[in-house]
């Protein structure tokens, strides 16, 4: 899974706007996000350009302006961003800064899992007979 680039607050806000309202141009984005934050249209335009260069937006010319649309869905973006964050945490476990419920890298060995299931089944049978 390809990681998504890290985004700032304004970039995320613009992404959320496009996910919720479909494609936008600079004026619409500035009206929705720039005005409440006191940001100029140029800043909003730069943000849309950056997101396009990061391959998170597609764009189509509409008259003199571009209309920007999301290239990834919200769910896909969240999944890829989470996977990237989780990937960074992999090294953290070795540094002792987190604890996982189970070390899932033990997934591979089916015969060992079967053996452990048998131990559990025997314990359950013993518990039931008491």
């Amino acid at each position: 899974m390809n990681p998504v680039p890290r985004l700032g607050d304004l970039e995320l806000a613009v992404l959320e706007l496009v996910w919720s309202s479909g494609d936008v141009d600079v004026k619409e984005a500035h009206r929705a996000i720039g005005l409440p934050r006191g940001i100029t249209p140029n800043t909003v335009q730069s943000t849309l350009e950056r997101l396009y260069r990061k391959e998170l937006f597609t764009r189509e010319r509409s008259g003199h302006a571009y209309r920007y649309a999301a290239a990834v869905s919200r769910d896909e973006f969240r999944a890829r961003a989470a996977a990237a964050a989780v990937g960074e945490l992999r090294g953290a476990q070795a540094k002792g800064v987190l604890a996982a419920f189970v070390d899932i890298a033990t997934r591979a060995d089916r015969s060992n899992l079967d053996r452990l299931e048998a131990i559990l089944a025997a314990a359950r049978a013993k518990q039931a007979s008491k």
């Binding site: 899974m1 999944a79 890829r80 989470a82 996977a83 989780v86 990937g87 945490l89 992999r90 476990q93 070795a94 996982a100 419920f101 189970v102 070390d103 899932i104 890298a105 033990t106 997934r107 060995d109 060992n112 899992l113 452990l116 299931e117 559990l120």
Partner: peptide, 26 residues
């Protein structure tokens, strides 16, 4: 513990949090 380890086999790449650990801990 065992259900989660088995479920991890079906998790897509990149979703599951996978760490290296000795099997004898499980």
């Amino acid at each position: 513990l065992l259900e989660l380890v088995r479920a991890a086999a079906t998790m897509p790449e990149g979703f599951a949090l996978a760490f290296s650990a000795p099997l004898d801990h499980l």
